[in-house]
Amino acid sequence: MPSDTPLMPRPWKTRLALPCVAFGLLLLAWELLARFAGWSTDVFPGPLKVFASMGELIANGTLLKHTVASLFRVTLGFYLAVLGGIPLGIMLGRWQNARLLINPMIQFLRPISPLAWIPLAMLWFGIGDKPAVFLIFLSSFFPIVVSTTATVSAINPIYFQVGANFNFTRWEMITRVIVPAMIPGTITALRISVTIAWLVVVAAEMIAVQSGLGYLILDSRNALRMDYVMDGMIVIGLIGLLLDYFMRRLGRIESAGWHN
């Protein structure tokens, strides 16, 4: 077995080349399967056909339009979840009575899949962006609350004693102790929940809207264009990859100074 040194950072060429190898192998397997599995190219199109049709979708602007629509919904739903979830999480993490009051209810609501809310969301919010944004909000709100609560309640109590010793006001306790102490954990939590939000947007767009990547996939299925379905899937994957990358960069910038 080759010796592995996990702490040794690999040169950037290796870090770029290795994933490319994996993607190359995936493409190869896809091509081989499409060619020899016996399905017609309409049912299981190969990579060349899919990339060609992606060119069409890019050229006529459809792909961009749907991507922007999906990103808009995710951004809005996710921001709403962050704005509601982080303050609530701080409160639950700091204030034991609030935790006792609300936490069981949150643990009860959390395992209910956002998809189970679809009928209610459509009744309450009609069609259009609102039910989709609501579902995305639900999908990221609970993970954000739960992880913020855990992060805040795990802050070393010494830091609060230091704050009290130097006469911190309640506001200073939040801005100078809680917020900096929770940032590394919170960025990890956001990274995970943005991925979940992105997962849910596709399902949400299959029910109530006339745009977005989820709609593109559903509409293409109805038109029996599996190459367009795969185009939609590829873009979803690529954007998921980028979201994860940016959240990781954010985490690295933030904790570069003090967090070891």
Binding site: I158, V162, A164, N165, G257, H259
Partner: peptide, 20 residues
């Protein structure tokens, strides 16, 4: 009745705020 800056406690470990 409560902590205050006229009587400062020096901790055994981790008394410094690590983000400052």
């Amino acid at each position: 009745t409560r902590p205050g800056s006229d009587h400062i406690f020096v901790f055994q470990h981790n008394g410094l705020l690590p983000w400052m």
